[in-house]
Amino acid sequence: MAWIVEDRLKPYSPTRSEPYLSPAIRRQVEEKYFPRYPNKRAALLPLFHIIMHEYGYIAPQAIDEAAEFLGLARAQVQDAVSFYEEFRLQPGGTCVINVCRSISCELLGYHAVLEKIRQTFGIDPGETTADHKITVLEVECLGACEQAPCALVNEELHGCLQPEEFVRRLQELSR
C-alpha cells in the first residue's frame, strides 16, 4: 500500500459483554485459516465471512476484536471490511433478499420482482420490514444470468423468478 496507516480510530464502546469472536470462532480461524496463509492478515476475509454467517452483520465491536485478534490496526480492518458489499455493517432481517439488477435480469424483468416485493411487504431496496423478518437489497450480477431474473435469499440462489410465486416462497421462508 502506498501510504502508512496511523491508527487514530478510537475503539468503539462495547455493546455486549460477550465477545463476538467467540472461543469457537477463534479456534476455527486459528486451526483452519491461519495455516493457509503466510500472514494472519490474509485470514481477514474468512474471519468476517464466519462473523457474517453467525450474526448476519458486522458489529463495530467485532471490528475491534478482529483487529486485536489479527494483530492489525483497527483502521486497517475497517478499511478492508467497509470495501466489501457483502459485509454489512447494519443488522438486517432474518431473510435477506439480494435481487440481481444487472443487464440480463433487467432485460427479463427484475423490476417486476421488486415491485411485487414492495406491494407485498411494503419495502424498497435497502429497507427492512418492521418485524425484522425481511430485508431487500439490489445487487449487481449474481452470475446466474441463464436463470434471470434471479435473487440470492440468504445463502441460496433462487432463479427464473415469477414474482407471485417468489413472494409466496418468501412468506414461507420468513415465517
Partner: peptide, 21 residues
C-alpha cells in the same frame, strides 16, 4: 471474496487475497 467486481482484476484479486480492500 465478498461482493466486489474489481476483485476479478488480477491485482485487485491479490490485494483481496491478502486481506485488504
Amino acid at each position: 471474496g465478498a461482493g466486489a467486481y474489481i476483485c476479478g482484476e488480477e491485482t485487485g484479486l491479490l490485494e483481496s487475497l491478502e486481506g485488504k480492500r
